[in-house]
Amino acid sequence: MFTIEHDFDATVITLIDEGGVALQEDVTICAFEDCVTLEQLDPLTGEPMRLTLSMAQLHDLAAALDLPEGSYRLTRKG
């Protein structure tokens, strides 16, 4: 399950784990103009962990999901 909200400066997507016994904490993805952040609460410390991806890294990740094992460099148009 997931939710999508449009805030003033970001689109916020929350991924909710509805899997089996070993459920994970929700993941919040915030898409800004120049980066994307992923946050998840660390169940051991109670503190949020944050990962920030540049737009280039995000495009590479999206491409990687559809490619076989290997090393790649994407060329950017424009």
Score class of each variant (00 low, 15 high):
Gly70His: 06
Ala56Cys: 05
Val36Arg: 05
Gly78Pro: 03
Pro43Cys: 01
Gln57Tyr: 04
Val21Gln: 04
Phe8Val: 10
Phe32Glu: 10
Glu18Val: 08
Thr28Ala: 06
Leu23Glu: 07
Glu25Met: 07
Asp7Ala: 15
Asp34Gln: 12
Leu23Trp: 02
Cys30Asp: 04
Thr14Trp: 05
Ala63Asn: 09
Asp60Pro: 02
Pro48Lys: 13
Asp66His: 14
Asp66Ser: 15
Leu41Met: 15
Thr75Leu: 14
Met49Ile: 13
Asp66Asn: 14
Thr3Pro: 05
Met49Asn: 14
Val36Ser: 01
Leu15Lys: 04
Val36Tyr: 05
Met49Gln: 14
Glu25Phe: 00
Ile4Arg: 14
Ala22Asn: 12
Val21Phe: 04
Gln57Phe: 03
Val12Arg: 11
Ala64Arg: 13
Ala63Arg: 14
Asp42Leu: 02
Ala31Gly: 07
Ala62Leu: 12
Glu18Leu: 11
Gln24Leu: 14
Ser71Pro: 00
Thr52Lys: 15
Gly70Thr: 06
Thr11Lys: 12
Pro68Glu: 10
Asp7Tyr: 08
His6Ala: 11
Arg73Ser: 13
Gly70Met: 07
Asp7Gln: 12
Leu58Ala: 15
Met49Trp: 05
Gln57His: 04
Pro48Val: 08
Phe8Tyr: 10
Met55Glu: 12
Asp34Glu: 13
Ala64Pro: 00
Glu47Leu: 09
Leu44Trp: 01
Glu18Arg: 13
Lys77Thr: 07
Gly46Leu: 11
Met55Cys: 14
Asp7Asn: 10
Ala64Leu: 09
Met49His: 08
Asp7Ile: 01
Leu44Arg: 07
Gln57Lys: 13
Gly46Arg: 07
Asp60Phe: 03
Thr3Ile: 03
Val27Lys: 06
Asp17Gly: 02
Ile16Ala: 02
Gln40Ala: 11
Pro68Gly: 04
Val21Trp: 06
Gln57Trp: 03
Met1Pro: 04
Leu65Tyr: 09
Asp66Gly: 13
Arg76Phe: 11
Phe32Val: 06
Leu58Phe: 14
Glu5Thr: 09
Val36Phe: 03
Arg50Cys: 15
Phe8Gln: 09
Ala10Trp: 03
Ala63Gly: 02
Lys77Ile: 08
Glu25Asn: 13
Thr45Leu: 13
Val27Pro: 01
Val27Gly: 00
Pro48Arg: 13
Ile16Tyr: 09
His6Met: 06
Gln40Arg: 15
Leu65His: 06
Cys35His: 15
Ala10Glu: 10
Thr75Ile: 08
Ser71Leu: 12
Asp42Asn: 15
Asp7Met: 08
Glu18Gly: 10
Gly20Pro: 06
Leu15Trp: 04
